[in-house]
Design a protein around this nucleic acid. Structure first.
Length: 272
DNA sequence: ATGCCGTGGAAACCACGA
């Protein structure tokens, strides 16, 4: 099963690029972020025609998250992070599908630092930590995928010294991300490419993509039960070079899931 | 290396993004 995350930066303005990528990559489950569309303007029909069912939480102008599936039915579990009923941002949606839990998230940007937006980001991460811990305690196989707006380490930034006081790289935010890993979550892309430069975002200007001046801020975190099922993964970076494209590229993993029953082996064991 | 580009929405500029 292939699970992908893609910050589309406007799901309607980006529809052709999204459909083109879905057709080429054929992911089974997709987490989308930055829909930038109200609930009623989500392109449900076009995605259905492409073979995907969807659940989403839209919002006028900003944010917005969705989960797509071309396999099992998506059963929505929640459409917000718990912990702040006043929080109106559409930044989290969670479903059960194919026997696993998939959470799609769009973390706050948090700039400028310091300030209220940065404080909101830290508080949001605390809520995420609390909820992520609950998922682990519940024991279900789970994936938390999305735009975390964090470069976890120096290797995830083309020029770390320029980003030290940026909300995406401030130590408080990196520590918040590290805390998730300490809970038991596995950063799938980093696990597959240890010590290598892998980026998921390139700015629109200054020829960032051509210069490979990128950031790794889109992540797929796997629960302990799923981590050993990780087969391969990567970033579809060529999508970033397409016309009218997002500033993010899709990141994806392939999991050996649902695990194939080993009937023959079991039968042999019983026979011997 | 300062939103320089890009999106959406409202009213031809503004908020926001990373």
């Amino acid at each position: 099963m292939i699970i992908a995350t893609y910050n589309v930066n406007g799901v309607n303005g980006r529809l052709n690029v999204l459909l083109r990528w879905l057709d080429a990559a054929r992911p089974d489950l997709v987490c989308l972020q930055e829909l930038k569309a109200p609930q009623e303007k989500f392109p449900e029909a076009a995605l259905r025609d492409a073979g995907y069912s969807a659940i989403w939480r839209g919002q006028k102008s900003w944010n917005g998250v969705a989960i797509l599936s071309r396999r099992g039915q998506l059963i929505e579990r929640r459409r917000a992070l718990p912990g702040d009923s006043e929080d109106a941002h559409s930044r989290y949606i969670e479903a059960e599908v194919e026997g696993l839990v998939i959470g799609c998230l769009y973390a706050p940007n948090g700039n400028p630092w310091p300030g209220p937006k940065f404080e909101y980001k830290l508080a949001w991460f605390q809520r995420l930590q609390k909820h992520a811990k609950k998922l682990l305690t519940a024991g279900a196989p789970a994936v938390l995928a999305g735009d975390y707006n964090v470069m976890p380490t120096e290797i995830d930034v083309y020029k770390p010294e320029r980003w030290t006081d940026d909300a995406l790289f401030r130590i408080e935010v990196r520590e918040a991300y590290a805390k998730l890993l300490k809970q038991g979550w596995t950063d799938a892309i980093r696990t597959l490419y240890p010590g290598q430069r892998v980026y998921t975002f390139w700015d629109y200007f200054r020829n960032a993509y051509q210069r490979n001046a990128g950031l790794r801020i889109d992540h797929l975190l796997l629960s302990p039960e799923l981590a050993p099922k990780l087969k391969r993964g990567g970033v579809d970076r060529e999508v970033r070079g397409w016309e009218k494209t997002s500033d993010h590229a899709p990141a994806w993993v392939e999991l050996d899931w649902p695990a194939k029953p080993k009937r023959k082996i079991a039968a042999k064991k019983r026979a011997s």
